[in-house]
Design a protein around this nucleic acid. Structure first.
Lengths: 229, 229
DNA sequence: ATTGGTAACTGATAAATATCATATTTTTAG
DNA sequence: CTAAAAATATGATATTTATCAGTTACCAAT
């Protein structure tokens, strides 16, 4: 049998922690759990969402496809993140696709449960609001980064970001392994350019690689590079 | 004497319309009005804000300065927009500066009034949340635009944006006149590049200029350019 | 009206980045 | 295990964009 939201640890990381016992019970009764295989979409750009997805396991990329077939990854979401919130709140179709980077387990919560709580529980609404304020700040920072930093700086930043947010494995490689293409889509550059810079960083001893895995060897130099030295 | 918020038409355009009579009265009693001259800041990056600013007149640019002295304009805010909301909600210092593009009149509303209402009036909170969801969506779109479109495409888009959001004057020039530097900071490019593209568009008959004023002559071609034809 | 300062503009060049072609390695499907 | 497909890698080149240098136009203050 599926576990109940009331006992879910994940909840501690997101706005659902501001729900009352009764509200959580309702959510738990209406939720369904889904597994998504690596590479499969949870939802796609333009979809009308009937609820939100709470990530229990795995990582999803939120991205938008352009006319020329490239897509830009706007955010990487992992355990505890709630996907589709914005779309449900503003009652519009999503502007982003959510695609699994590795195998995932998510809980689908129908929008009625969310909207209901938004109407009645100011604490919950405020919590969601705080979360969104944070996301907005981050998005603004990304805008400034992309337009003011070079590809090399953004690559360095991306590795540090991955280290800070997803950690490292026992051998010192980044715990979240992205394809070169995904890396280039996070950074906003051509795949070949990303690969070239990886080679360069490796040659300079800033990082090490093993297959597609990447490990940070000289954090300080990477940081300096981000700052523009 | 200053006008009262209860009678303020501006309010219709922002989340303050969700306030109750009593809440509005409190806001009105605690607010102060300020005029800001063209070029002057309302607040600057890193400031701790003690409240929000409701724009009554004029236009402000929200931007962030980088180490190398360039700044990126993230948003243009005009009549009805509330500045500093995010910062007050997340209780952090602002990550953006707000600088007047032309002479402005703004109402300062102490954060206590806002926080108080956020705690007590779910409708208001929800309204603010909806607004922020919209801003976040726009920010995501900007990210994708900057990374996937050429400078030329973004320039074309900027002119159309200015037309749609600020309109035209009697002679068909964009009602909001930005300096070439501000245009380049919206688009995220070097000032010289922006100027060059303006010259090119003019030569091609897409726009016309008169001093620093710019008028759109061939909207359809600009649109096609944005789409990548 | 003159002057000084700033913004707009233009050309030449350099630097950054994308694209195309192709080789090599890794992964996947049968 | 092996063939085919996909991902990674690298070189050559083209394109885009930034930078630097210098000129011209415009506005503000005496």
């Amino acid at each position: 049998m599926e576990s109940r939201c009331e006992n879910c640890i994940i909840r501690q990381f997101n706005s659902l922690r501001a729900m009352s016992k009764e509200e959580l019970k309702q959510v738990s009764d209406s939720k369904t759990t889904r597994t998504i295989k690596k590479g499969e979409p949870i939802f796609e750009e333009g979809d009308k969402l009937n609820g939100v997805y709470c990530v229990r396991n795995g990582v999803s990329k939120l991205s938008k496809l352009s006319a020329n077939g490239k897509d830009q990854i706007v955010k990487l979401a992992s355990k505890g993140e709630v996907l589709g919130q914005r779309s449900v709140i503003s009652q519009e179709s999503t502007n982003l696709s959510a695609i699994a980077i590795n195998d995932m387990e998510v809980c689908f919560i129908p929008k009625e449960s969310i909207n209901n709580t938004l109407q009645k529980n100011p604490n919950f609404t405020l919590e969601v609001l705080r979360h969104m304020a944070h996301d907005l700040k981050e998005a603004d920072d990304v805008i400034v980064n992309i337009s003011q930093k070079t590809v090399k700086q953004r690559m360095a930043e991306a590795f540090l970001y991955l280290q800070n947010n997803f950690g490292e494995d026992a051998e010192g490689y980044l715990a979240l392994t992205l394809s070169r293409e995904d890396i280039s889509n996070v950074v906003g550059t051509a795949t070949e350019s990303a690969i070239r810079i990886i080679s360069e960083f490796k040659k300079k001893g800033l990082i090490q690689t093993s297959g597609k895995k990447i490990g940070i060897k000289d954090e300080r130099k990477l940081l300096e590079m981000v700052e523009g030295f």
